[in-house]
Design a protein around this nucleic acid. Structure first.
Lengths: 145, 145
DNA sequence: GTCAATGTTAAAGTTTGGTTGAAGTTTTCT
DNA sequence: AGAAAACTTCAACCAAACTTTAACATTGAC
């Protein structure tokens, strides 16, 4: 049992499509060695890397941010549980902020929309830190703040 | 004081770019009358409509869903605070679910990534309802569930 | 009446996160 | 050895939510 995974095996185990895995490689989020014939072989901890990527997406990170995060992992040894924990704990502020926003929305929905207060630019509900968010095109991720 | 707004005025008051306002109109989310010369003029409650749109986006709704929601407003009278409240209260389940997901992530981050449990497909953290989410292309919105 | 500021349209471009398809190669199974 | 299954690359496509650009028209202040 060589513990190298083919792209199909990694896909099956991670639940992530092979096309996505190739895409992640192109974006520098994961890496593979190649067989003599040119096929990808993944080391076992790539599975954990892929898991990290998917969870990070749920937290609202974009792939380029995730790439940067992953780059802070040790290069020449398999990352430990502690490494992963350090990485993911950096999300806490982000998660906390997002949870707070959603709770604010939930608890003040009725009042704020119906009333005349909404000039949005200055609405405390949406811009608690007075950032009128104009951040270019593309889909809006709710966690982007 | 005719209380009609030009697109520039609406943009300034709402904090939403004019290009976005035209886009919203093309998508059927807002409406305008036209001057003799063909310029848009918005009634005052359009401001509230735009506010609604932006808040709804924060809640994670896509524009087409927002359009449907807005279509349930009364056609021939200015919506009341109650109308808006009814509309926005339909978000509660969605908000609650999303808050729950984020709290789950926050509270179990360390354990779940570091450990070997993550075959993602079956991870209770990400798929509490056992939906291995394969929902087509496009950016992943964290609220999509 | 002039002129700057603001407005118009339509089409194309941007970003993110991928998928799809074609045409060919490698691995693995028997 | 031969065939099926899995793999390769590359380019094109998709969707959301806008923005940008170009070329031209309207408004409103003086």
């Amino acid at each position: 049992m060589d513990s190298e995974l083919t792209i199909g095996a990694l896909s099956e185990r991670s639940g992530v499509a092979t096309s996505a895995l190739r895409f992640y490689e192109a974006e520098g989020l994961i890496h593979a060695t190649r067989t003599a014939g040119g096929q990808r072989r993944y080391s076992r901890d790539t599975l954990r890397r892929v898991s990290f990527i998917r969870v990070a997406q749920q937290v609202g990170l974009r792939l380029d941010e995730i790439r940067v995060a992953l780059e802070s992992l040790p290069e020449h040894r398999t990352p430990t549980a502690k490494d992963w924990e350090r990485l993911s704990s950096s999300w806490r502020p982000r998660l906390d902020a997002q949870i707070a926003l959603l709770e604010r929305l939930r608890d003040r929905l009725g009042g704020c929309i119906g009333c005349g207060c909404l000039s949005l630019r200055f609405c405390k509900l949406l811009n608690p830190d007075d950032q009128a968010g104009q951040r270019g095109p593309g889909p809006r991720h709710i966690l982007e703040g």
